[in-house]
Computed example of a mutant assay.
Amino acid sequence: MLVETMTFALIGLAVGAAAAALLPGYFPTSRSLTVATAVVAAMIGGLICDFSLDGRQPAVALAVSAVGSVLLVSVLARPERAAPRARRRRPA
């Protein structure tokens, strides 16, 4: 149980760090909030899935942990505040 919990936390840390590093313009809030949200979401999602599956399928719990973390971090994203992208003109 301890190893799974640490794995869930590492998944959340990886998701949060990747989101903050790869898309910094999308997250106007602090990086620590982005990473903390990812870690907490991964741990809660993974533990709920692990308890509901009775610990029989740890791979599913890891996948649910990652998906839950990505989904909750995406709630923090603000693409309208990101730097404007170069618009491509379509030929007439």
Rank of each mutant, 00 (worst) to 15 (best):
Met1Ser: 06
Met1Asn: 02
Met1Cys: 05
Met1Phe: 02
Leu2Tyr: 07
Leu2Met: 09
Val3Thr: 08
Val3Ile: 07
Glu4Trp: 02
Thr5Asp: 05
Thr5Gln: 03
Met6Ser: 07
Met6Gly: 07
Met6Ala: 11
Phe8Thr: 00
Phe8Gln: 00
Ile11Pro: 00
Ile11His: 00
Gly12Leu: 01
Gly12Asp: 03
Ala14Tyr: 06
Ala14Trp: 08
Ala17Trp: 12
Ala20Asp: 13
Ala20Met: 10
Ala21Val: 10
Ala21Glu: 08
Pro24Arg: 05
Pro24Ser: 06
Gly25Cys: 03
Phe27Gly: 01
Pro28His: 12
Ser30Asp: 03
Arg31Leu: 14
Leu33Asp: 15
Thr34Asp: 07
Thr34Ala: 12
Val35Tyr: 10
Ala36Cys: 06
Ala38Lys: 07
Val39Pro: 09
Val39Leu: 13
Val39Thr: 06
Val40Trp: 00
Val40Asn: 02
Ala41Lys: 01
Ala42Tyr: 04
Ala42Leu: 05
Gly45Pro: 03
Gly46Pro: 05
Gly46Thr: 03
Gly46Leu: 00
Ile48Cys: 03
Asp50Met: 08
Phe51Trp: 12
Ser52Cys: 07
Leu53Trp: 02
Asp54Leu: 11
Asp54Ile: 01
Gly55Phe: 06
Arg56Glu: 15
Pro58Ser: 09
Ala59Trp: 15
Ala59Val: 13
Ala59His: 13
Val60Asn: 11
Val60Arg: 08
Ala61Thr: 13
Ala61Arg: 00
Ala61Ser: 15
Leu62His: 08
Ala66Leu: 15
Ala66Trp: 06
Ala66Pro: 05
Val67Pro: 02
Gly68Pro: 12
Ser69Lys: 05
Ser69Thr: 02
Leu71His: 07
Val73Met: 09
Val73Ala: 04
Ser74Ala: 10
Ser74Tyr: 06
Val75Met: 13
Val75Gly: 08
Val75Lys: 10
Ala77Pro: 00
Ala77Phe: 02
Ala77Glu: 05
Arg78His: 09
Arg78Ile: 08
Pro79His: 04
Glu80Asp: 00
Ala82Val: 04
Ala83Tyr: 05
Ala83Ser: 11
Ala83Asn: 08
Arg85Val: 14
Ala86Lys: 04
Ala86Tyr: 04
Ala86Ser: 01
Arg87Leu: 13
Arg87Tyr: 10
Arg87Asp: 13
Arg88Asp: 14
Arg89Phe: 14
Arg89Leu: 14
Arg90Ala: 14
Arg90Met: 13
Ala92Met: 11
